[in-house]
Nucleic acid binder design. Structure first.
Length: 149
DNA sequence: GCCAACGTTGGC
DNA sequence: GCCAACGTTGGC
């Protein structure tokens, strides 16, 4: 089991958007993944792409709201592993599908992460622009603890 | 809204 | 292959 963190501006695609998509058109088949809920696409950065490609079904994914909120707000899970990104005609880029697992009881803010000794090495702090990041198990557990879950 | 940090592009 | 120019991200 690996852990990840994805960032999204809530005005573009929020945690609630993900939840809503899953209510309306849940993923029923890997083959249809490109048309179904929770498609994580549009990544155009090689490092982020590499992380998407490394995601395995069942991996846990922290969902972070950038710009507005600036906090980890929920936990998602990888349900479909990488396939060519349907939003671009270029085989270099890939998408995965994420499913909401649960909303955090209390969002864990960037400020909290920065001020926490155990979390200050997170990519969120050290490589703030990377949109798909690996998270260490210890960090994942710490975030959950801070959220009150 | 500003701007620093960073990644990408393309001319040479 | 270097690097200036440019575009984007995201915190402040």
């Amino acid at each position: 089991m690996n852990y990840w963190l994805v960032k999204s501006e809530p005005e573009t695609y929020s945690w609630d958007t993900l939840v809503k998509e899953w209510k309306e058109k849940p993923v029923t088949s890997d083959k249809l993944a490109g048309k179904q809920a929770g498609r994580w696409d549009g990544v155009r950065n090689y490092q982020a792409r590499n992380n998407l490609q490394a995601m395995k079904k069942g991996d846990k994914v922290l969902f972070y709201h950038s710009v507005i909120g600036k906090a980890v707000v929920g936990i998602a899970q990888v349900v479909v592993e990488h396939y060519p990104d349907p939003t671009i005609d270029d085989p270099r880029w890939v998408a995965v599908n994420l499913k909401p697992v649960k909303k955090l009881k209390n969002a864990v803010s960037l400020e909290t992460v920065k001020n926490n000794k155990d979390l200050s090495e997170m990519f969120l702090v050290t490589h703030s622009r990377l949109s798909v990041q690996p998270v260490k198990e210890k960090e994942y557990k710490k975030i959950l603890k801070l959220s009150g879950d």
